[in-house]
Structures are given as C-alpha cells and as structure tokens.
Amino acid sequence: MSQGKSFLRIFQYSETSILLELKAEPKLDLLNELVVFKNLLYSNLSGIKQITLSYKSLLLQFSNPLKKYKNLKEEILKLYSSFDSSKSTIKSKHWNIPVCYESKYAPDLSILSEHLKLSHHQLIKLHTKPIYQIYFIGFLPGFLYLEGLDAKLYYPRKKSPKLKVSKGAVGIGGRQSGIYPNQSPGGWNIIGTSPTSMFDPNLKQPCFAKSGDTLSFYSISETTFKKIRKNRIPPNFREIIL
C-alpha cells in the first residue's frame, strides 16, 4: 500500500451506479491515482458499463441494477487498499495545441492586458509556458477541464456571458483556461482562437484527448491558423508515462 493514500468514500448514487470520492484536494498525484484506479476497476469488476472521472471522484455505472452492493463495496475497498499508482505504466499523451493570439482572434486580449498590467507578448508567453493537466471532459462535448494556468493570468469571468463565443475560442475564466469546442454562450474572456478541432461527432473517438493527458499551447500566425483549419490538421502529441 502506498503512503498517504486518501480516504475513499463509497456511495450508492443511483439504482445502477456507485460514486467513489476521495477526501483530498485535487492535484496532480490525485488525478494520476484516479486514472490508474479507474483502469484497475475496469479490469477487475464485472458488469461495468462506464467509469467517468472528475476532479476527485469516479462514477461507476453498471449495466444492471445493483443487487449485491455490499459485496461490491468490499471488493472496491480491497482493490483500493492494494493498488499502488506510483507503479503505473499507463501511457498518456501530451498535446501541442496551436493558438492564434492576433487581435482578430482575441477579442478580450487587450482588456486583460490592460487590467493585468502585462504586455500582449508577456501575456502570450505566460499562457503558452505551462504544461496543463487534462482532468476530464464536461460542460460541453469536447470541453477540457484544464489545470495549470499561471496565477498571474487569473481573471474573473464576464459579469454577463456573451451569447456567442466562437468555435475554438481560447479563454480565461477565474483560475481556469479552456477551449470552446463549439460556438456557444460563454462568460470567459477570449485571448485567442485555436484552429484545432476539439470535437467531431463523426469520429469514433470524437475528442482526441482524455483524462490524464497533458496539453500546452503554442502561438501561431493567422496564415498558419487558416492552413490548419482548412486542412483539419490534427494536433501533434508525444507519449508520456503517468
């Protein structure tokens, strides 16, 4: 058993699902623990239809109503106490996402630049520097929950959301940064636009990224933006081990 493992709360959520919640603050090693434990559950528990991950929990959904919840609970606890996420060899991917920060594609960049007292150049540098952790996908199909925004770029959401934020818009909302996979209403300040398709329902895997992957942004020109969008060029990645 690894040191410092978090307390696991097991809760029957619906007739066919169980919620596993870790009592801890979301941070990188917790995410890794969840990803590894999720894989372990998939291969060890029968009748699982789907496991979805969020900041500090896993939701296990079963094909049929749960008849032997108590036995299942014991089995889950046993699996949890015996696994060690540090010995994982699960492969993840690091994605390089192109973003055009030119004013036409960045309606709120100047406002942020003014309020945060950073030049456009400094702002872009701070946004493209970190490695962002992909926690999970939610809110909209293909919307990645990313952690890792530089604290110098924290900026509150707009007081009233805009009705139309364009597809690919890269925004900052509070302590988060993210990419709008489709045109939708939204309250984040838009500092750039990515030509990369974040969600395509016609693909078998409609979003390239998944929980446990990482991502970073790099700045591109308008010409490159147009080329990538027109030719639907998928993003570059390299494999990483969790």
Binding site: Q50, L53, F136, P141, G142, P201, Q205, C207
Partner: peptide, 10 residues
C-alpha cells in the same frame, strides 16, 4: 449515448 460521457457527451 450511454458510454460516451468521458467525451462530455450527454
């Protein structure tokens, strides 16, 4: 679409 929720699909 049960089973597609890891992509944020309803």
């Amino acid at each position: 679409r049960m089973g597609m929720q890891e992509y944020g699909i309803p």
